[in-house]
């Protein structure tokens, strides 16, 4: 009863949100709106930038690369993350704490430092090539950087924690009694996995997958360092158009497409998972 009578409460209305609101309006909403509007006004008013982007093989190839790499990264991280999150949920907590520390360390280590590590590891004379040759899988060094293989490996490395952590949260909440029940009813381990554990973990897999996919779509640093200019992805296209070619119309159009896809996938995620949580 008291809580809405005291002055302490009166001061924390909309006014307190003003600094953040004004900052975001001035330096986020208006600039982004400005960028998007240039896609239909430069060089002349019209949709020609979008026609060029969606109509030429060069640009379609970039969209294809972006979706291919993001899809592969999502698939690979999901395949690794499921057993890992499962193990983490049931392991002795001391061991799990060590694994968590490693996950967090990797997550918070400077992005450029991690990408640098992979640039060195994957180069022609790098450790990965030398190990593959030593165990006889390949005879000659294979090209692992400046192509989409390098980008995929580097991105899997960066995205893994973002898949493991949400999935762990979901699996940890599963009641062990449900799986015990499955065993009591005569389910083999394989059946219990396929028909009980996996379905129960699906919300976590789907939400992690959407997050990793969306983050990968707009990623710039790793693709540009490990992929090279011949294998561009969407974010690199935006930067190239704006920074090297000063073509703000095309850059804005590519940014708009990325924005729409990103927001659409987030909206999907909210609908799928917020609704269920309630």
């Amino acid at each position: 009863m008291l809580s809405f009578l005291t002055p302490a409460r009166r001061g924390s209305g909309l006014g307190m949100a003003m600094p953040a609101l004004l900052l975001l309006l001035a330096f986020f909403v208006i600039p982004v709106a400005g960028l998007l509007s240039r896609s239909v006004t430069e060089p002349v008013t019209g949709l020609q930038n979008y026609e060029t982007l969606l109509g030429s093989a060069t640009y379609l190839r970039i969209f294809f690369n972006t979706f291919l790499v993001s899809g592969l990264v999502t698939l690979i991280t999901a395949l690794i993350a499921f057993p890992v999150a499962w193990a983490l949920a049931i392991m002795p907590s001391r061991v799990a704490a060590v694994v968590f520390a490693i996950i967090l360390l990797s997550m918070w280590t400077n992005l450029l430092a991690r990408t640098y590590a992979w640039m060195v590891l994957l180069q022609q004379t790098g450790l990965v090539n030398r190990i593959l040759m030593a165990i006889g899988i390949i005879d000659q060094p294979i090209q692992l950087t400046n192509n989409l293989i390098g980008v995929t490996i580097g991105m899997v490395y960066i995205m893994l924690p973002f898949m493991i952590l949400p999935l762990y949260g979901v699996i940890k909440k599963i009641d062990p009694a449900i799986l015990q029940a499955a065993a009591l009813c005569g389910a083999t381990k394989g059946q219990a996995l396929r028909r009980v554990l996996l379905p129960l973990a699906t919300p976590g897999i789907a939400s992690g997958a959407l997050m990793v996919f969306v983050m990968s779509l707009g990623y710039f640093v790793t693709p540009s360092l490990l992929g090279g200019t011949a294998n561009m992805m969407l974010a690199e296209l935006i930067v190239q158009q704006v920074q090297s070619l000063l073509n703000w119309g095309m850059g804005g159009a590519a940014a708009f497409i990325l924005l729409v896809v990103t927001l659409a996938l987030y909206a999907l995620q909210l609908r799928l998972f917020e609704g269920k949580a309630r």
């Binding site: 049931i90 392991m91 990797s106």
Partner: peptide, 30 residues
């Protein structure tokens, strides 16, 4: 059964193995 580490049998080693490999994959480059 699948949520009890001690009752997993051989699966326990597979899961631990994957988990250890993943941890090495994350840690070694650093």
């Amino acid at each position: 059964m699948l949520m009890n580490f001690d009752k997993l049998g051989a699966w326990r080693w597979i899961l631990s193995g994957i988990c250890a490999l993943m941890a090495l994959f994350l840690l070694l480059p650093i």
